[in-house]
Amino acid sequence: MAIIVNIDIMLARRKMSSGELAAKVGITPANLSILKTGKARAIRFTTLEALCRALDCQPGDILEYREDSH
């Protein structure tokens, strides 16, 4: 998929664990894992807002567009 989710990078920058982020955002660790591994089909604005608040960042820091090579 052309949209890359950079949650791992932001977690490393903020020195935060996945479990901690999931608890702060209010989603299950399983759903956070779906998001991190790029398996998610869509993300709700409310989830994005909660992620930005928890990681103290902008949506652009979490989501990135990269053109597909094929």
Binding site: I27, N31, I34, K39, A40, R41, A42, I43, R44
Partner: peptide, 8 residues
Amino acid sequence: SEENRLTI
């Protein structure tokens, strides 16, 4: 249902 499940 799968789309819904994979919408986080």
